[in-house]
Amino acid sequence: MTTITIMPDFVLYALVSGIGVAIVMGATGVFVVWRRMAYFGDTLAHSALLGVAIGFLAGVNVNIGIVGVCLTIAIGMVFLRSQRHLAEDTLLGILAHSSLALGLVSISFVSALRIDLMTYLFGDILSVTPTDIGWVYGGGTIALGMLAWLWKDLIAITVHEDLARTEGVNVLRTQIAFMTLFALVIAMAMKIVGILLVTALLIIPAATARRFSRTPEQMAVFAAIAGSLSVALGLQGSLLWDLPSGPAIVVASALIYVVSIALPIRRAA
């Protein structure tokens, strides 16, 4: 698509926004790993496309559409899960695929608006504008602030929900707040890696960080670093060899993971 020769600006924008997203995703992603929410992340990401369509149809900012739909699905899941009619993965499968399909169908209605589907599915970090950077850093600051506020309670309910509850943690409030955070992060990340690969940037850096961490906080920081490194390397590859940027970032993070497990470091404890 593009070459690196001139235009240092767009490279800088891509790098700055990509690293911003990677930090937030690394810090959030550790909970996705600890709480086994990978499939849940996929479901939210898939539903984001419906958010895009609704954003266009309703004439509001696409990011608001995405956050709105993700949040609805996320909070819906909190309640559906307590009903226990279906196994959780079945429920997620229904939500993930029907919302993705609904998103695709809705987008076809508004195709007159020239929505570039590929941009949403795989991301387009190289087209990031200063406004997007504003979104990333504004949203990212809110997300990290929420995460810091929720951190203690989230760890407590991750270790044992009933124990946390008897010690006075408001479990439902914490879960809903985390879902809100999750929806925000998905909306932020879509532009960078796209709907289909969002979960990768939540999970792979966190998995990479596990071996080197002795505390939950260390793991979050290392995940943020691994994610940022993935963005830098992926972007580099994308510019050098004209690779699609989102997939290149994910490939880079997978490579970092593979290298990290090959390193001869004693497993924590």
Partner: peptide
């Protein structure tokens, strides 16, 4: 109230001493 649950299983991905 102090409570000890029947069992507590910490996911292997969570580093917690």
């Amino acid at each position: 109230v102090g409570y000890t649950p029947q069992q507590l299983i910490v996911d292997r991905t969570l580093p917690l001493d």
